[in-house]
Nucleic acid binder design. Structure first.
Length: 932
DNA sequence: AATATCACG
DNA sequence: GACGTACGTGATATTT
């Protein structure tokens, strides 16, 4: 029967339901596998309450309408439309498809159309219902839909259970439904980023529309407006206002692929509905609905007993999983479809090496559901090993999809904002894919989940996590590649073997995600992960791929100079020793010094060999020339081997730049670590070493700019421990070490000697490290009793420091972790240990909140940096714990420094308000030596 | 693979 | 009373 008089259509705004459900409920997860289902649960509850509330009512037709696709005709009209929307929360994404399934399970029509907003579908249906002479109720409180009210169309705010009719629209907009769009066009909408007319809000807009009758009339006669400002605004922004109207005007004439008749109310099929609810493991709701439907509730699995692993119970063992090799486009497409349907996929890339800037992509593995995973080989070669010695190119192995074709198919899903890509150490895969033209986003990273949850407890590599959480040892890569000289690269691994290994890795990653992600909330580290771990991945990936220019000739010249000096020193050392030996061998040097030459104080290390560190040689240098020569030789040897030589090998032949790799989860405290090469320990303290930095240069027309936090750890200590004297000194911009010395030794600031200041500085640093009399004595080369007296005086003068140290250790003992100001947890499992480890653990616990908070702050600055410098010709290149290095176009330096400084100095806000200011020093120059 | 040494914050 | 200590990293060369 055709829809018409006497019929009543209900249209439910699905997105509004979802968001309300998501925000109203805590982040629930499905017990068995950790799938986030909070929003689905809330959504089902709302649907059920809706159904119960309308039982016996006059509703004859109903549908839930959803948005589909992020790009609509409104984006074509105005590219900024809804541009300021925040990204959908990660744990909501995978729930979106489930809400569709839920709607269908309730046997309610579920409608969406690609490229259209739900509002347009609702508008079209409401108009059709009105024209047919029936009634229509829109279940939503979205003011954008108010233009549809009237002539049998009403809105219902389900939350407040309030009906919005023509009077309600008048109340909200001051005009009737037919003029709502005119008012919206003028007032604009900050939520949807509709510009409107600047300075005109709803009140003024309604006033104007009521006076002139319509927007068109108002704009045509804008010259008549008395208020000069208002008149000018309307005339100047006419185009913008007209655009705004087109943005807010809903489309009542969409061509739908269904009719209202298709939306007739249907009773739910108990089996389907209860089956879905049971699958979601909603116990209460299953009982309630089975009661309402008068059927027996299906069994919902009870939560696993605390001792048993849910993983082991819910999923078959990893060893029983099915591993698919994707060899044709049809199979690949079916996997892509499955990924879209699920909204979540674990991804792993296989490559020819560990260096992301040099390794080539060989294959991609995917896992959507535990139990089944796929490997897509892309560049496997035939043959047993490396390219043959005579230059013959190895042939591409049979049975692989074309490289470009396959990546072309994968690109949309890997870049789809509605599909979450999970990886273990995703920065690696993101860089490999980026080099193949794919910007993978959004991402989750199991390594970073583990790090946010368990820094300090254990490592975060896949093997460790798999054994710990899945009780499964992954196939060692060595079994495929071999070791040593005969090792092959992954592209020479036979595809069938590669499939087992690669598919397993993707599946392990997915299972780890299911286990770890729900724990973030329980451990209260969601913000740590979301704000300081996950966003680092794209930021660091970009920095690493950009690299920094290093001048090979500079390094090469220095290398030669070092070699010459070393040769001279070596000859002198041999002469002084009376024999020839390997100066680089501490064992041989020890024998020469402590046996042949008879020096006292030779201590042996673990290996029973003499120990010859720099401070020992430094002491001996007062008695003999040889130790000094060795010290000089060692310095040069270090500089040459680690820097001037090794750094040259790290210059990428394609980019001419050096690309480090930062480990995000390397340091327990939250600091980054730099590897391959380490660019966080480039020499600076010695004059000779500092010259290495002359080789780090900017491109022509550019300069390097370095900005570093001044005394950030001491400032944090002053804040955390609440030391008023230190806080005041920092606020007043005083010399903090001189101030400390003045307080401790009763020396007025203007009589301060460098020696006294140096001692105070050592104490200040000592405090951060968990001071001990022994350590301070060694550092200052003073008797232990004297050092202890310094410390006692310090604690007397700053009792808050002692309290902080005691409180922190007590906290660590109670909780087995300590925390930064931003909530990062650093676990301290050794804190209860007896013996020498006890001291270690205590000092680490004291240091961790300070070092960790500083690390958090610079991470926050780095995450915000790309947006802050987006419009400036500047690129962030390096991070060195409290310093950021940028490459900047010469004439933009004066604009870049203030922008960067603002982000860095304000990085603690708004989460933490520090009692001390953060200050940032800046430098610039052609090379890093000049900029620092 | 472990140890010693030393580069950085 | 003795133990043995500054905190956090990574790279290199030597030795096992």
């Amino acid at each position: 029967m055709a829809f018409g008089k006497g019929h009543h259509l209900h249209l439910i705004d699905g997105s509004a339901f979802i968001f309300r459900a998501y925000h109203a409920l805590p982040p629930l997860t499905r017990k068995s596998d950790g799938l986030p289902v909070g929003a689905v649960s809330g959504f089902c509850n709302m649907l059920q309450r809706y159904v119960e509330g309308n039982a016996g009512g006059d509703v004859t037709h109903v549908a839930v309408i959803f948005d589909k696709g992020s790009h609509t005709f409104r984006n074509d009209l105005y590219d900024q439309y809804k541009a300021n929307r925040e990204a959908m929360p990660e744990d909501l994404r995978p729930q979106i498809p489930l809400t569709r399934t839920a709607t269908e399970a309730f046997n309610i029509a579920c409608k969406e159309m690609e490229g259209f907003e739900a509002d347009d579908i609702i508008a079209t249906l409401a108009c059709q219902a009105r024209e047919a002479g029936g009634r229509c109720t829109i279940i939503s409180s979205d003011k954008d839909l108010m233009q549809l009210v009237g002539g049998g169309v009403e809105m219902l705010d389900a939350m407040k259970n309030k009906t919005i009719d023509v009077d309600g629209v008048f109340e909200k907009f001051g005009v009737g439904p037919d003029r709502v769009v005119d008012v919206q066009a003028l007032a604009g909408d900050s939520v949807d980023n509709v510009p409107g007319a600047p300075g005109i809000g709803i009140k003024t807009a309604a006033l104007l529309i009521n006076e002139y009758g319509s927007l068109e009339e108002l704009l045509d006669r804008a010259g008549e407006i008395k208020q000069p400002k208002r008149r000018q605004t309307l005339i100047e922004h006419r185009a913008q206002i007209e655009l705004s109207k087109r943005l807010v005007q809903l489309d009542c004439d969409m061509e739908l692929d269904f009719t209202i008749e298709d939306l007739e109310v249907r009773d739910p099929e108990p089996e389907t509905l209860l089956g879905f609810l049971a699958e979601m493991e909603f116990r209460t709701l299953t009982k309630r609905i089975s009661g309402a439907l008068g059927v027996e509730a299906p069994a919902v699995p009870e939560p696993a007993a605390t001792t048993a692993s849910p993983e082991a119970e819910e999923h078959p063992p990893l060893s029983a999983s099915e591993h698919v090799t994707i060899r044709d486009a049809e199979t690949l497409q079916s996997w892509i479809d499955a990924i879209h349907a699920r909204g979540v996929v674990a991804v792993d890339t296989e490559t020819t090496g560990l260096n992301e800037m040099r390794a080539d992509l060989v294959g991609v593995s995917l896992c959507v559901d535990p139990g089944r995973a796929a490997y897509l080989p892309l560049a496997h070669k035939d043959g047993g090993g490396a390219d043959d010695l005579f230059g013959g190119e190895a042939k591409l192995a049979e049975g692989q999809l074309d490289f470009e074709t396959a990546l072309g198919m994968l690109k949309p899903v890997l870049e789809d904002p509605a599909v979450l890509k999970i990886g273990q150490n995703m920065k690696y895969d993101a860089k490999i894919l980026a080099r193949n033209g794919i910007t993978v986003a959004p991402i989750d990273d199991t390594m970073l989940l583990s790090y946010a949850l368990h820094a300090g407890l254990h490592g975060h590599g896949m093997d460790a996590l798999s054994e710990r959480y899945l009780d499964h040892t992954p196939i060692p890569i060595k079994t495929l590649l071999g070791t040593g000289k005969s090792a092959i690269t992954f592209d020479f691994v036979p595809i069938e073997e590669a499939t087992k290994y690669a598919a397993e890795d993707a599946e392990i990653t997915l299972r780890l995600w299911q286990r770890l992600k729900p724990r973030l909330h329980l451990a209260q580290v969601t913000r740590v992960y979301e704000w300081m771990e996950r966003p680092m991945v794209p930021v660091l990936a970009e920095m690493e791929m950009r690299g920094i220019k290093v001048d090979r000739d500079t390094l090469s010249r220095m290398s030669n100079a070092f070699a010459q000096k070393m040769a001279g020193l070596e000859a002198e050392i041999h002469e002084l020793a009376g024999e020839s030996f390997n100066v680089g061998s501490p064992a041989q040097l020890g024998e020469i010094l402590f046996e042949k030459m008879g020096f006292e104080g030779g201590k042996t290390g673990k290996s029973g060999k003499y120990s010859t560190p720099a401070d020992v040689l430094e002491d001996l240098a007062t008695e003999h020339d040889l130790p000094r020569r060795v010290l000089d030789w060692r310095q040069l040897s270090k500089l040459k081997s680690t820097y001037t030589d090794a750094l040259q090998d790290h210059i990428n032949p394609e980019t001419g730049r050096v690309h480090t790799s930062y480990s995000i989860a390397g340091a327990n405290t939250g600091r980054l670590a730099s590897t391959d090469p380490n660019l966080q320990n480039i020499p600076v303290r010695s004059e000779e070493g500092r010259r290495i930095r002359e080789a780090f240069v900017a491109e022509p027309g550019h300069v390097l700019v370095s900005l570093d936090y001044s005394q950030i750890e001491l400032r944090i200590l002053a804040h955390i421990a609440g030391i008023d004297a230190l806080k005041t000194a920092f606020r007043d911009g005083l010399d903090i070490h001189a101030m400390t010395a003045s307080e401790m030794f009763d020396v007025p600031l203007d009589e301060m000697t460098p020696e006294v200041r140096r001692q105070a500085k050592a104490i200040n640093f000592g405090v951060i490290y968990g001071i001990s009399g022994f350590g301070l004595a060694r550092n200052l080369r003073i008797p232990r009793a004297e050092a202890q007296a310094f410390i006692d005086t310090y604690f007397e003068r700053f009792p808050g420091i002692r309290a902080y140290m005691d409180d922190t250790v007590a906290f660590a003992k109670e909780h087995k972790y300590v925390q930064t100001l931003f909530g990062r947890k650093i676990h301290t499992p050794e804190i209860g240990a007896k013996g020498p480890q006890a001291g270690f653990a205590k000092r680490a616990a004291i240091n961790a909140p300070i070092q960790g908070t500083a690390a958090d702050i610079i991470r926050r600055a780095m995450v915000r940096m790309p947006a802050a410098i987006a419009d400036l010709p500047a690129r962030m290149l390096l991070q060195v714990h409290d310093e950021l290095i940028f490459e900047v176009e010469e004439d933009a330096v004066d604009r870049v420094i203030p922008a960067v400084r603002q982000v860095m100095e304000g990085a603690a806000a708004p989460v933490v308000h520090l009692d001390v200011p953060l200050t940032v020093d800046a430098g610039q120059g052609r090379s890093w030596a000049e900029a620092h």
